[in-house]
Design a binder for these strands. Structure first.
Lengths: 195, 195
DNA sequence: CACGATGTCTAGCGTTGCTAGGATGTGGGC
DNA sequence: GCCCACATCCTAGCAACGCTAGACATCGTG
């Protein structure tokens, strides 16, 4: 493993991230339909084929962006949960942070949840960042409740539905806060450990 | 309005529906990525340009399929609600019917909720079929509750999230029934009219 | 029968994701 | 210091996509 080899690996890793962030920025400023391999190549100042030496295809690039997104979402939710005191407040903070994330980074959120990707979820070798976000929801329920995972799944589903339906105008966006409060009051409040 | 003119209109309407059902069948058997204008034209035994004499583009065809879907979903939910007795049972029946619809017609459901379409939702002139499905959820809550619309929005969001997250493998599909029961118990049961 | 209008198809444009094969330049052995 | 080998990168191009212009045929009408 010579020094120049390791330098090349560093450069390669750097360019890898360059492509990912370029794709993300382009998507966030003009939408995913504007992210073509040609425009992306132009943006990173390389030719198209170098994209394919880093990724298996366009879908893999989207997946890489999504993976970054899951990392950030996990950290965002964790921060929110840790600044709260008590399980009830934690749930509210995490839910609010989730919707915040979805509305402020719509393109990133799309890559993570709407666009087709290569990411393996329910499988055994699910990447850690993919679990991390979900685990933040789980942590908002009592460890003694053996149904806390189920609660987390339902809350996550509801939040995802609210995010995506309001983003596409299927439900009025201005009532998002009311919906959030209703959800928390019903799911979290008053004994999440209840039968 | 001569007889031959009306005959031509009939033929035209018939071909319109032919295109829509062909697109839907193709999507349901091979997925939407397999629905190209060429394959669709071949399937209805016309050339490509006739598609564009009926629709403004591919997105409009998807929208037409989605519109059909909303009609069917509304009828499906209505049937489910009417076979139940009492508001609580109605909510359970409608929710179950919704998830049933989503899992049994995934391609149709995608056209309605995931794929980009021309459909106008929150606007004033929202087509009736688009409201119909939502109204079935509203009808599951007491007319005296001035927050029944809000309840309906939250339930719909949760169901949509459950449908789409489990379809893409992000939450385990086999626990769908448990999640549904939890949602109903928390949102519907025990006084949907509660503060 | 000839004309005009309506409807349909062939052919092609620009763009997409993706790839083969040649040019370029850098690093290591003599 | 020279030269070869190897890795890297780009030019050029393929098939398929959504969509459209213009030629062609078909049909009802005078």
């Amino acid at each position: 493993m010579s020094a120049i080899q390791s330098r090349r690996e560093r450069e390669r890793a750097h360019r890898h991230q360059l492509i990912v962030t370029a794709a993300r920025e382009l998507a966030e400023s003009e939408g995913w339909e504007a992210v073509t391999t040609r425009r992306l190549a132009e943006r990173v100042e390389y030719s198209q084929p170098v994209l394919y030496s880093h990724f298996d295809g366009k879908e893999a690039i989207v997946s890489a962006v999504a993976l970054d997104g899951f990392g950030e979402l996990g950290a965002h939710l964790r921060r929110a949960r840790q600044t709260a005191s008590g399980l009830g407040e934690a749930l509210r903070a995490v839910c609010r942070a989730y919707l915040e994330f979805a509305t402020e980074r719509p393109a990133l959120y799309q890559a993570m949840f709407v666009l087709p990707t290569d990411l393996a979820f329910a499988s055994a070798e699910t990447p850690a960042p993919l679990r991390a976000g979900f685990d933040e929801f789980v942590a908002c329920f009592s460890p003694e409740d053996d149904r806390r995972e189920l609660f987390a799944e339902v809350v996550w589903s509801a939040l995802h539905g609210m995010a995506v339906l309001s983003d596409s105008g299927r439900i009025p966006a201005e009532r998002q806060e009311e919906r959030l409060e209703l959800l928390i009051a019903r799911i979290g409040g008053g004994g999440a450990t209840a039968p």
